[in-house]
Write a protein that binds this DNA or RNA. Structure first.
Lengths: 173, 173
DNA sequence: TAAGTTTGTTTCAAACTTGAACCAAGCCCG
DNA sequence: CGGGCTTGGTTCAAGTTTGAAACAAACTTA
């Protein structure tokens, strides 16, 4: 099979994607490191927990929600636990399970850091996109996700995860 | 100033973005680690060099092209140098400077790995996007980049970097 | 031209990530 | 029940990233 190289348009888009994602991750990490002393992923973990019912989630569900590996999550939660922002509880119904619970301190931290984080996300992204483009971005990202998950696991889409269907204040992950 | 929280549409887009970028980076890293024994960034470095005139670039230019920090690049080039894929030369005109040169071995490695990489990028992304969406993606990413670079440095856009204006086979970074 | 600043790059320690290996605890079936 | 397979999580070593500090060569300017 002869390689289907990228067209010039695709190349441009791809390069733009690489550049934008690097810059954006860096900017978010820098801001949160300054403001909350933790990288973006760690904040996302707290934010995700803050939206879950009972402010808790099983490790696997949390990893799945954020699309990260379990071992990465284990390490991160260890740190957050050391900082007192998260606590681990063992699962009653399944003794293998471990549940990450957001502590009051953790919740306070999310609430403290959220405004600055949202502002950064806006400044870097949404303030420069039309409503249409917001929709386009979601659609494009959805396709990427489906392409990569469709492969093996037919996991439910993020918005179908039961604990995702709430309203309430949005710390944005 | 009262926080401008994300709208529900923005939240959805943001979550989709986080998920998609995590999944995509993971997929690319996995594929290249398997196929070429190096993470995506390292391949990007080789690919970028392979397109530069003389297959070489100053460290700073390379870092700028890929939007990564200089220290990250230093580490990566050290590894690639150890592997014999890149060689460092000192800059004649500016004795502070250091130039990364792609070795023949490095070039061969890019050529060997490129097809698989492009295939992965297609499978994860372009095969699922319409031509229109490819344009939208580029536009959106361009805005992110401008938003984040506009801040302090009015650096030239990637496509204006002189050594970018070539034709020739596209290993895609 | 000496002093002070900026620019290009590396260094170092601390923090983070990866992937494979491991340990339970559930599950499945004969 | 008693293997085997699967699932939920953690561990460990090796590799990578970060950010601040260190250096050295170039500029600037008094």
């Amino acid at each position: 099979m002869t390689t289907r190289w990228l067209t010039p348009e695709e190349q441009r888009a791809w390069r733009a994607y690489i550049a934008a994602t690097h810059l954006l991750e860096d900017a978010l990490d820098r801001q949160l490191q300054q403001d909350a002393g933790m990288p973006h992923l760690y904040y996302s973990i707290l934010a995700t927990l803050s939206e879950a019912p009972g402010r808790q989630l099983r490790m696997t569900d949390l990893a799945e929600a954020l699309k990260i590996t379990r071992s990465r999550l284990t390490y991160a939660v260890n740190r957050l636990e050391k900082d007192g922002l998260v606590r681990r509880e063992s699962c009653r119904s399944d003794k293998r399970g471990s549940i990450a619970v957001l502590t009051d301190e953790g919740m306070a931290e999310v609430e403290r850091a959220a405004p600055g984080h949202v502002e950064t996300v806006r400044a870097a992204l949404f303030d420069h996109l039309s409503e249409e483009q917001v929709g386009q971005l979601e659609e494009i990202c959805g396709r990427i996700t489906r392409a990569l998950e469709g492969e093996d696991g037919a996991r439910p889409a993020a918005d179908d995860v039961p604990w995702r269907r709430r309203s309430s204040p949005p710390p944005c992950s």
